[in-house]
Amino acid sequence: MARKGHRPSKAPASRPRFWGRHAVSAALANPERTVRKLWATREGMSGIDVPASVPVTFADVADLGRLVPADAPHQGLVAEVDPLEDTWLGDLLQQGAGEGDNRPLLVLDQVTDPHNVGAILRSAAAFDALGIVTQDRHSPPESGALARAASGALEIVPWVRVVNLARALEEIAEANFWRIGLAGEAPETLATAIGKARVALVLGAEGEGMRHNTAQHCDQLARLPISSRMESLNVSNAAAIALYAVAARDHAGD
């Protein structure tokens, strides 16, 4: 049954802290996000729209630096937030079921680096992807580093966490997505594999690539046509290129 899941209440110590203008302002603007506290310099508050319900503590740069990891570029803004409510795969697939909706879906197989996932979310927002799907136990939690890398996209791109990725890929297939796994050893390039169907792009973990069982649940494997001088690309770069390839197909006649 398609439904929204609710996370249990978090203890204050487990709430993530976001920093930087893009991450904090996007969190404040997201009606689905609860911002518990905001620390800011007076300069950092310039141009930031803060709801009256959010308590603000003014502090100097050094004080803010003690609230976040060493050398984090907080730009005079630090926010403590509640994690977003879970999004369920059935709900996401239902959103993309409308006629003419050709938005791609991204599936990440044990991509654990928060900077990579944040960068992938940013590319997903830039190319209007339907959302991303990850395995719950093998993906990073919401964090300041991830939100910073996402540059606001964490607040606007649906993120589904699933227990069983293979089962999720079966559900994605039932929703009429053509599942393309990116693999450097594949004989066919992504450009020729895309075709005209709705696409789910499946990307494997940093270094190891897709697991065998994940590849078995793809309809087709394809590679990016990179030079033989380079063995592979960072997963976030590969995701951006793959999303561009889908966008180029969809806008070929524009």
Rank of each mutant, 00 (worst) to 15 (best):
D63Q: 15
A239E: 06
D71T: 03
R179Q: 08
E231G: 12
V162D: 05
H74C: 09
A183Y: 11
A147V: 09
T57V: 13
G204A: 07
G98S: 10
E43G: 10
E43R: 14
E206N: 05
G253K: 15
L201Q: 09
L106K: 09
D101Y: 01
L221M: 15
A222V: 05
W88D: 03
D101I: 04
A150M: 07
T87Y: 00
L64S: 07
V24T: 10
V199H: 07
G118E: 10
R103I: 09
L201Y: 02
R103V: 06
W159P: 06
R249F: 11
A252I: 04
V61P: 00
M210S: 11
A215H: 09
A149N: 03
E231M: 11
S227M: 11
Q135Y: 02
G20L: 10
S151L: 14
R42E: 15
A191Q: 13
L146S: 04
E99Y: 00
D82A: 10
L108A: 08
W178S: 10
V81K: 06
N102H: 10
L221E: 06
E206Y: 04
R3W: 00
R3T: 00
V68H: 04
G204S: 10
L84P: 02
A62N: 08
L201N: 02
R249W: 08
C218R: 06
L89D: 01
G90M: 01
D91Q: 11
A175H: 08
T112C: 11
R179G: 05
T87I: 14
Y244R: 14
K10A: 15
A252S: 12
D60V: 12
I226H: 05
E170C: 07
D91E: 14
L182Q: 03
P114E: 01
I241L: 15
T41Y: 13
I226R: 03
S9M: 06
R223D: 02
V157R: 04
L201T: 07
H6G: 03
E142F: 08
E155G: 05
S228N: 14
V111C: 05
V160R: 04
G152W: 00
R167A: 12
W19T: 01
K37F: 15
I172C: 09
S232R: 06
I48M: 09
L105T: 01
T189C: 01
V56S: 08
H217A: 13
S143L: 05
A126W: 01
A173C: 05
A252K: 11
A79T: 02
Q216Y: 08
T112N: 13
D219K: 03
E231Y: 01
A52V: 09
P104C: 04
V111P: 03
P69Q: 12
N102L: 12
A245W: 07
A242I: 11
D109E: 04
M1P: 01
R229L: 14
T192E: 14
A173G: 12
V162T: 07
V107G: 02
A252M: 10
